[in-house]
Every structure is written in structure tokens, then in C-alpha cells.
Design a protein around this nucleic acid. Structure first.
Lengths: 216, 216
DNA sequence: GTCATCATGTAAGCCGTTACATGATTGC
DNA sequence: GCAATCATGTAACGGCTTACATGATGAC
């Protein structure tokens, strides 16, 4: 999984609420195990990098309990207490809970809307699995870009001439798989267009923000 | 494409006759473009490594013309002339034609028969496309190993619960693809068993050598 | 108290792509 | 002779996996 894709997965999962690294990995494997995989050795450095970049913030352990809202801004003695408690709670090693910053949300939208030329099926799958965060017209565009890529790959693919039966069966099956992927995209497009024509004017938060944010 | 797989592709293509690097890449893209890809930056170092290891030998340009067989062994003056001609023909940069050594053939058989736990569909496809070099029972075994891997991956895969429609469709399509791959393997197994029961006692060169060679 | 699991993090090694550099051949 | 293609090779860079190291938590 290349860097942008890992970032996309992390930011996407955190879009549903704060999580710590271990849980992010668990969810990726449980929910998207067939299309995404990530080792701790790449996940934790990625989280640290995203935090450095300002895309992620670390949640104070106390804030896991929303029944204790921060009334007004913290300052002076109160802030010192809180920092001390954070250290005491986490020690040097404990859960480190990340949340999306506004910049992180923008970065996520950028990654989601920026289609790479080297997208493979898994990359596309991960992207599409977050499609609810895309504007409707961006969904259609994403499907069409992916479809064009697959069609081009097929045309550049093997003519399957003068191959022995074993190699020929492999090439044939690979071509079949791509064609099924294309058919799947066509179904998605039909469903998407139908859904959009039914309820066109409703704009969600994600949809409005998607229109105001430029790709990274 | 991991190292073993690249080696497998190179050695497999050279099994049909001597080739130079540029041509190896051309054929890989033309014949197996959907399942294999390789850049010069990895191909040439791989060729050099295989040559160092003794799996490949460099063919004298003269030997491209089989109408000039080497009658007897070369020695002394004759050998010197030939070496000079080789340098003159290739200069410092020209076609460098590789051929399989006996050791290279053994290495190929080892790679072909040694299934890795991290095999993906492309790796398996490349392996299977060289299945004609495998002993019949090794073909069946390869198919069954791959099938078991896919079944296990499916069982570990997502329960697809509480996902939004977009993510759910991705997971569902991925599972469908794996199931189609399994069905394909089943077809291959049926065809393979049928072919083997029709003509069991015929042993080709590859089949006999496959039984005497141990994996690398 | 100890074992399994949860949880974070670092370092080494591997490998592949990209970009760069060089030179030979062929058609015009 | 010049451009396009054929042909080989090197170096820098990026990024992922594996293995290692450390520590907290909960069950028994």
C-alpha cells in the first residue's frame, strides 16, 4: 500500500471519530481485510507523520468521556493540571488517541478527489469505500476514470496468441476479471445516477466541503 | 514483483530459448502484461545477478546462427579469435543475449515448485503460466495450495456488517472476485485431472527433471 | 504474579521505481 | 547526418515488511 493510500485509509477511518493506532489496524483488517492491509511498522510512522503535518491531533484521555465538557478555554493552572494528568494517564506508553483536524479533513478530501494514474483495484476499492465523503458528481467522475483505466489496460493487454494452454488460461482469466470489474463499475454508475436523480438537491456537509477544497 | 517472481519470469522465458533483456521485457509486457510488469531498473540488475549466480550464461553473438556449429572444443588461437570477435561485435554496449545454464534450469524448477505463503493472484498466475514445466502431480498440488489460500482469505475476510453502502459494495465485490478465482481453480483442476487420466504414462523431459531437482 | 493481549515505537533490510547516462541501429 | 528506437546500465530515493524492544492491562 503506497503512502497516499495509507494516509487515505487512516484519515478516512478517523472521519468517523477518534481512534488509536491499534484500533485503526484492527478495523482495517476486520472491515477491509480483502482490499487493505497495513503493518504496525508502517502505520505508526504514518500516524506520527500525519500528526507532525497537522492533519491529526492527539486527544486527551479525559476527552474520551464527553460527559466532562470543557467549559470555556483552559488557561494557566488548569492547563498545567490537564497536561500533568495526560502524562499520568498515558505514562510513556499507553493509548494515543488521534482525531482529525480541520486540515486533516481537507487533506482527506484532496486524497479522495485526486485520482492517481497508478491506481490499482485495491487502491480504487479503498477510495470508493469512502465515496460517501465525495460529492455526487465526483463519485461519477471517479467511476468513469477507473473504467477508462481498465479499458485501456485491456486494450494494451495480451492478444493471447501462440501461448501454451497454461499461460493462455491465465491471460484469459485475468482479462475476464478485468471485464467483470468493468461490469461492476457500470452497475455502480447506474445505481449512482439513479440515486442522484431521485434526490438531487440535498447537500450534506461532506458534499459542500468537497466543493470548496482543492487537492493536495 | 518480488525478487523470486522476477527470477521466475526471467528463467521461464529463457526456457524457450536465448533472449536479451530488452526482448524479455517486451515479451513480458506483450504476453503477460495483465499479470506481470517489470522495469529496466529491476530487470537488468536481476539479469546481472542471475549471471553472477551461474543461472544464466551469455551467448556469443556468433551463436545466434546455429548453421555454424562448434565442431569440437575451442582452444588456443581459435578461442582467442572468438573472444575478440565477441568484443568487436558487442563493443561496450550492444545486445547481450542470455541463455539458461543447467543450474538455471534447476533454479527455475525450484522456484516453480516452491510455493510461498505470500503468493498473490499475480504471482500465482505467473507460476501457473509456466505450469507446463511442472510435473503433473505438482500442478495439482499447486492448484490446491492456491485454493486453500483463497478459501482462508475469504474466511478471514470481512463479515461486511455495519458498513455504509459504498464500503459494503467494495467488500462484496472483492469477495465475489475471490470466489470467481476459486471457481477458476476448480475448473483448472478438473481439466488437469481429466488430461492426466487420459495420458498418464507419458513423461516429458521437464517432468522427469522436475522429480530429481530440489528447491533452492 | 504471571501470562496473554493490548499498545506503541524503532531499525534493518529488501526491493522496486524513477531518473539519469550512455551507446548502437535503422530509416529517411 | 539526424531522429527515433533499440539496448544496457547506474544511482537516488521511497516505502514497506520483519524483527526487535518496551511497557500497560486484565484475567486467573
Amino acid at each position: 500500500m503506497i503512502k497516499h493510500v495509507l494516509d487515505l485509509a487512516i484519515l478516512g477511518l478517523l472521519g468517523d471519530g477518534p481512534l488509536h493506532g491499534y484500533e485503526i489496524r484492527r478495523r482495517l483488517r476486520a472491515q477491509l481485510g480483502l482490499i487493505a492491509n497495513v503493518s504496525f511498522g508502517s502505520l505508526y510512522p504514518a500516524l506520527a507523520r500525519l500528526e507532525r503535518n497537522g492533519d491529526l491531533g492527539v486527544v486527551d484521555a479525559d476527552e474520551e468521556f464527553p460527559s466532562l465538557p470543557a467549559t470555556g478555554s483552559l488557561s494557566g493552572e488548569r492547563a498545567a493540571q490537564r497536561a500533568k494528568r495526560l502524562v499520568a494517564t498515558r505514562g510513556r506508553r499507553s493509548k494515543k488517541i488521534y482525531e482529525l483536524t480541520d486540515q486533516g479533513r481537507a487533506t482527506f478530501q484532496g486524497l479522495l478527489n485526486t485520482a492517481s494514474a497508478t491506481d490499482d483495484q485495491r487502491t480504487f476499492g479503498l477510495r470508493w469505500s469512502f465515496a460517501r465523503h465525495l460529492a455526487p458528481q465526483a463519485r461519477i467522475a471517479l467511476l468513469e476514470r477507473r473504467r477508462a483505466q481498465l479499458v485501456q489496460g485491456l486494450s494494451e493487454g495480451a492478444p493471447a496468441s501462440d501461448l501454451d494452454p497454461y499461460a493462455a488460461s491465465v491471460v484469459e482469466h485475468a482479462a475476464d476479471s478485468v471485464q467483470r470489474d468493468i461490469a461492476w463499475l457500470d452497475e455502480l454508475m447506474i445505481a449512482e445516477r439513479a440515486a442522484q436523480s431521485q434526490e438531487p438537491p440535498i447537500l450534506t456537509h461532506d458534499e459542500t466541503s468537497a466543493q470548496t477544497i482543492s487537492p493536495a
